[in-house]
Every structure is written in structure tokens, then in C-alpha cells.
Computed example of a mutant assay.
Amino acid sequence: MTLSFKTKDRHGYSVKFSPYLPDRFVCATSQYYGIAGRGTLFVFDILSSGIEPVKIYEWNDGLFDAAWSENNENVVVVGAGDGSLLVYDVTNPKGPLKAFKEHSKEVSSVDWSPTRAENFILTASWDSTINAIWSPRLPGCFATASGDKTLRVWDRRTPQPQCTIQAHEGEVLTCDWNKYDQNILYSGSVDCSIRGWDIRNYNKPLCEMTGHRFAVRRVKTSPFNGNTLASCSYDFTVRTWDVRQPHAMEITEHHTEFVYGLDFNLHRPGQIVDCGWDSLVHVYKPRVLLDGSLIGMVPNPLVVTTLVEA
């Protein structure tokens, strides 16, 4: 069953499930496809009756990514088009608690360190054209995906990367760590491919997955299965993968525009949320993940098409 919500004239860029509450997530959106106009942060709860907005926050520029605090269930940090980093308390009906001007151009990604003792926020921006994400298993370690076609692994205590991977033939738009192996990293690119890498030996990829017709905007690894990956793309689809197979297990076609945001629920095995430029937000379980793990090994992908009224 797919639950859907339409954000009217706001176009979805990022969705993140709460690490604390299984039925809560946020969606960062922008007006006019992020080119101009305002931005809106939606705080949603998943109810038996559907997706319900519990807080809506407006900002004077587009919002492009969001991350939950790892030490406070009510705090969200959001990246804005004016270079600001916004900190919200979702119990507060007013605007952000703080607004830090950290970048000269739009903040394209934000991530909160999973190590509570460190409590760092990682940001990336179009002033350097990268996407950045903390390792869930290696304290102080993070990876960046860049427009220079590389994937880099960093230690926050040193200024130079620990390794630089010549990852793709086109810009690398996204990356994510395997939740079960601290050495495995996945990347997605405008060359339409997804590749897996072992950061100890990265002369060639561990695996390559193909099938997207346009750029891979985001990849997310499952918190329940080390072989499961989901991706979304400018080809309007979300795809579910077994990383041991070169082709998708399931193709979900329920958007009519670029799909930008994607996340796995940390509490409900197999549940995914996505959002796109068609202003639609969907919460659902791919059929091959009904029990949280991949079901069967099919030679051809299962194609699921859902029509949602505007």
C-alpha cells in the first residue's frame, strides 16, 4: 500500500525518517524547482488514514536537504539555497532556532554525525559541488561525492582525503555507506550507473548496477540488509537492488518528474519514503522488500506503477 501527499507548489528535494519515531519524517522542498522562490520544511506523521503534516515551516529561499539530530528527537538541521544552515525544533511552531550562514551558495547536503560523543554536523554546498555523508561505523570518517567524477574518504582530523576514487565517467551526485561493512561505499552518477567500492582496495569497483536511463540522484543502503540498496533518478523511477545482481529487482514508477529524495525507515523493515519535483511524497514498501529483505531472485525486474491524482 502506498500513502501519498501532495505539497502543492513545492517541489521535493529531500526526505528523512526520524531515528527516534518510526512514523515521523521531514521533507525539504523548494518553490519553482529550486531555481527561485521560497522553501518549505514539512514535518509529517504517518497515520492509518494517510500522511499528515504536523508542522510546516517557511523560509525565504529553497530548502535542499535535512538531517535529524542524533541526540534530540525534536531537532532537525536543514540546508538552504542562500547558504544558510537552519536548526529547527519541531515542537516550536515558529521558525528556526538558529540560522548559520556557512556557505556562499546553496547547501546541497547536511548530515548529523551518528557518534553522539562527537555531535558534528557535516555540510556540503554547490560552492564546492559535493555531497557528503558520515560513516555510520567509523568515528570521524566521512565520504564525499563530487562533480569532478571522484569519490573521496576523509578523516575530519586531517585536511587531506584518506583516499580518492576515480569512481565514474560523469559527475558523482550521491554516495552512501553499507550499514554492515565499514569498508563498503556505494556511489551514483550522471553516467546512470551505481557502483560499489571497497575503500581498502579501490582500483576497480566491487559491483556495478545499471538500468537507470538518466542521472542517479540518490542512493540509500538498507538498515536491515547489507545486500539491499535503493536509488532514485531523473528518469522518474525508484529502483530496488540486490547488490550481487547487475539489474534492479524492482522498478517503482509513481512519479512524473525527477525523483530527488529517498530514505529507508530505521524502524520498519522495507519501508521507504521518496519525493520528487512533481510535488508528491510517497511512503511504501517495494514488493521485493515486504519482509524487510529481498524476496526471491528474479531474472527480470518487477515494475510497479502507481497513479496518484494531483
Rank of each mutant, 00 (worst) to 15 (best):
L21H: 13
T29G: 07
V77G: 05
T164C: 14
D111M: 02
K98C: 10
H11E: 13
S108L: 03
P223T: 06
N92Y: 14
P114I: 09
G50E: 12
D65C: 12
A67Y: 01
L302G: 00
S193G: 08
Y32S: 14
G95T: 07
E118Y: 11
E52D: 11
V172C: 00
S109E: 10
L151Y: 01
Q162E: 13
R218C: 05
D45L: 06
N183W: 14
P286H: 03
K285L: 09
A215V: 01
Y260G: 04
G83D: 09
C207E: 04
F25D: 05
R137S: 14
R287S: 11
I251P: 00
N71M: 07
V75W: 09
E208C: 10
A248C: 14
E106S: 11
V238A: 10
P93I: 10
L280I: 13
G276P: 02
P114T: 09
H212L: 06
I272E: 01
V190Q: 06
T29V: 06
S293W: 04
L21S: 08
F44L: 15
Y88P: 04
F44I: 13
I46H: 05
R24E: 11
Q182E: 15
Q160E: 15
L21E: 11
G37C: 01
G79H: 05
A132F: 06
A143N: 02
G270A: 08
R239E: 09
V190F: 06
Y202Q: 01
Y260W: 14
L294M: 10
T7P: 02
L229A: 10
D45S: 12
G140A: 07
V26Y: 02
R195G: 02
